[in-house]
Amino acid sequence: MSAYLVFNYRINDRDAYDPYLAAVPAILEAHGAEILAADFDSEAVEGDARHVTVVLKFPSKEAARGWYDSPEYQDIIGLRLDNCDGMAVLANGAGQ
């Protein structure tokens, strides 16, 4: 059953964030994730959305959690959390 991680955030310090952006694709690939969307100029049509939106597809919620909790990702997560404001949501795919 596929699962999706959706991130929506504002970058507050681009120079400090850039090492995260460089490191995260290899970690995603190692955990079987697929990047479905990555938009740094996304448009809010409702609510208080930020300008960065990323949608990741994983084989399951367990696989998504495995990536998120992995030592490799935990080593770089601070680069995003310390330099951005926003949210992340983990959801099952439709019909699951």
Score class of each variant (00 low, 15 high):
Gly32Trp: 12
Glu62Leu: 06
Ile76Phe: 02
Met87Leu: 12
Glu34Tyr: 00
Pro59Phe: 06
Thr53Leu: 09
Ala38Ile: 09
Tyr20Lys: 01
Asn12Leu: 11
Ala33Ser: 03
Ser70Val: 07
Ile76Met: 04
Ala3Ile: 12
Gln74His: 04
Thr53Val: 08
Ala22Asn: 03
Asp15Gln: 05
Ile77Asp: 06
Pro19Cys: 12
Ala22Ile: 11
Arg80Ala: 10
Gly95Arg: 04
Tyr20Leu: 02
Asp13Phe: 07
Phe58Gly: 01
Tyr4Thr: 04
Ile77Glu: 07
Ala16Met: 03
Ser60Cys: 05
Asn83Arg: 10
Leu56Tyr: 07
Ala37Ser: 02
Phe40Cys: 13
Val89Cys: 11
Ala26Tyr: 11
Leu21Glu: 13
Ala91Gly: 09
Leu28Met: 09
Tyr9Leu: 14
Tyr17Gly: 00
Asp18Lys: 15
Ala37Thr: 00
Ala3Phe: 05
Ile11Pro: 00
Ser70Arg: 06
Arg65Thr: 12
Val45Cys: 05
Ile11Leu: 13
Val45Tyr: 12
Ala22Asp: 02
Val24Pro: 01
Ala49Ile: 10
Ser2Trp: 15
Asp13Ser: 04
Asp18Ala: 13
Asp75Phe: 12
Lys61Cys: 04
Ala30Asn: 05
Ala94Val: 15
Ser70Asp: 04
Glu62Gln: 06
Met1Gly: 15
His31Arg: 10
Tyr20Gln: 02
Glu34Ile: 03
Asp85Ser: 09
Gly95Cys: 04
Leu79Ser: 03
Tyr4Gln: 01
Asp69Phe: 12
Pro25Arg: 07
Glu43Asp: 12
Gly86Gln: 02
Ile27Leu: 03
Gly93Ala: 11
Val54Ser: 02
Asp39Gly: 08
Pro59Thr: 12
Phe7Ser: 11
Tyr73Thr: 00
Asn12Met: 09
Ala44Asp: 01
Phe7Asn: 10
Gly47Cys: 05
Gly47Arg: 10
Leu5Ser: 14
Ala3Tyr: 08
Asp69Leu: 04
Gly93Glu: 09
Tyr9Glu: 04
Pro59Ser: 15
Ile76His: 06
Asp15Trp: 12
Asp39Ser: 09
Val45Pro: 00
Phe58Lys: 09
Asp41His: 13
Ala30Val: 01
His31Phe: 10
Ile35Gly: 02
Ala23Gly: 01
Val89Glu: 12
Cys84Gly: 04
Asp39Lys: 08
Val52Ile: 15
Tyr17Glu: 00
Phe40Asp: 11
Asp85Pro: 02
Ala23Thr: 10
Ala30Met: 03
Ala38Glu: 06
Gly95Tyr: 14
Gly95Asp: 11
Asp18Gln: 14
Cys84Trp: 14
Glu34Ala: 06
Pro59His: 11
Ala91Asn: 10
Pro25Asp: 05
Gly95Thr: 09
Met87Thr: 14
Ile11Met: 09
Asp75Glu: 05
Tyr17Gln: 03
Phe58Val: 04
Lys57Pro: 03
Glu43His: 12
Ile27His: 00
Ile76Gly: 06
Ser42Trp: 06
Pro71Asp: 07
Val89Asn: 14
Gly78Ser: 08
Asp39Leu: 05
Ala94Cys: 15
Tyr4Leu: 08
Ala49Gln: 15
Tyr4Phe: 11
Ile11His: 09
Met87Val: 13
Ala30Thr: 01
Ala94Gly: 10
Gly78Gln: 08
Ala23Met: 06
Tyr68Thr: 01
Gly86Ser: 00
Cys84Tyr: 14
